[in-house]
Simulated scan of single mutants.
Amino acid sequence: MQETPFCLRVGHLLPYSMSDSNTTDFTNLFTFILLGIPGLEAAHVWISIPFCTMYMIAILGNITILFIVKMEPSLHGSMYYFLCMLAIIDLVLSTSIVHKTLSIFWFNSREIEFNACLTQMYFIHCFSVMGSGIFVAMALDRYVAICDPLRHSTILTNPVVAKIGLSVVLRGGIVVLPHPLLARRWSYCRTNIIPHSYCEHIAMVKLACADISASRYYELSVAFLLTGLDVFFITVSYIQILRAIFSLPTKDARLKTFRTCSSHLCVILASYIPPLFSFLTHRFGHNVPLHFHILIANVYLLLPPMLHPIIYGVSTKQIRDRLLQLFNHKGT
């Protein structure tokens, strides 16, 4: 039997017929249906295990970083303040997708209200942009520390760090704001089913019956211009850093200096490579199954928040030593 088409608008559910222009207005809230990972429904419970594990490690690791930096006075500096900002961003970003994804996997709770969907979409994109901005700030910190070490404490003072953090937050909040505002304007037709495990921007606006080119172009502009500029500034910073490192007189000095920024390099690679891979598979992997795209889209939001505290905990001596002190104190 052929399914009756319908038209959905924000806040209303409007039955729609091509032959009848009359519509009935209901007051119940408009909801989307998230499918999870289409094609792998039978494996949802098994897929939830690594997702939940990554999330728990991310929560534990980032809270530990925040605790160590707060308790250790020697870590009260610009590098560690930026690291704390990144930890908070990671906590919010991972939490914004996991609670709904796991409720789909475990309880088959697929409905999400329109406003909740917009909020989730906003948080995901907003905190992703903030994370990219923090990487630029951390690259600046490493550049000053290595290329102009005598002036590091006078350049990156606490008020300057606070202003940089505030600008990163404002940039993320303002730049991403058009996403939900544009999405709220559209009328949504034919279906309210999103073939995804969370409210991903393009997956959502594709359901609109209006011309969504404004949303598409704006998302591409943000991706290319904003992320492109961030990557450009990080690259320029590290070119200058590497030049300074290779100009040092001894091999030991070069290795010691390089170790001070190696953790940041690893974090950048862990954060930018998965989204880049997802972007390339979307644009050029036309034969790649949908469930693979959705798995990658989840992994690149969950993997970096899990890896960041591990990388910094292992490679940063001050954090590693303080963590070992905590474990030794508990063991005695």
Rank of each mutant, 00 (worst) to 15 (best):
I241G: 06
L140A: 15
S74P: 03
R142S: 12
A214T: 12
I311E: 08
I239V: 09
S21T: 14
D321G: 04
Y16F: 11
L29V: 03
D20A: 08
W186Y: 14
E200S: 09
G36F: 09
G11R: 12
E200C: 00
I296R: 03
I241W: 05
L40V: 09
I294C: 11
S262P: 01
V45M: 09
Q240V: 01
C52D: 11
D20Y: 01
L323A: 13
A116Q: 03
Q318W: 00
I112W: 05
S167C: 08
L248Q: 09
S78L: 08
E41V: 06
F105R: 08
L326T: 10
R110Y: 14
T64Q: 08
F82S: 08
P180R: 06
C126Q: 10
I68Y: 07
C7K: 12
F246A: 00
R254C: 02
S128E: 08
R259Q: 15
P180Y: 00
Y55R: 06
Q240E: 11
P50G: 05
F327S: 13
Y188D: 02
A42H: 04
L302H: 12
A87Y: 07
T4L: 10
L29D: 07
G61K: 00
M85C: 07
A137H: 05
T257H: 10
M18W: 13
N287R: 09
H293A: 11
T227V: 02
G61N: 01
I294S: 15
L323Y: 12
P5H: 11
M130Q: 00
K256F: 12
F105Q: 00
V10K: 08
D20T: 09
R9E: 03
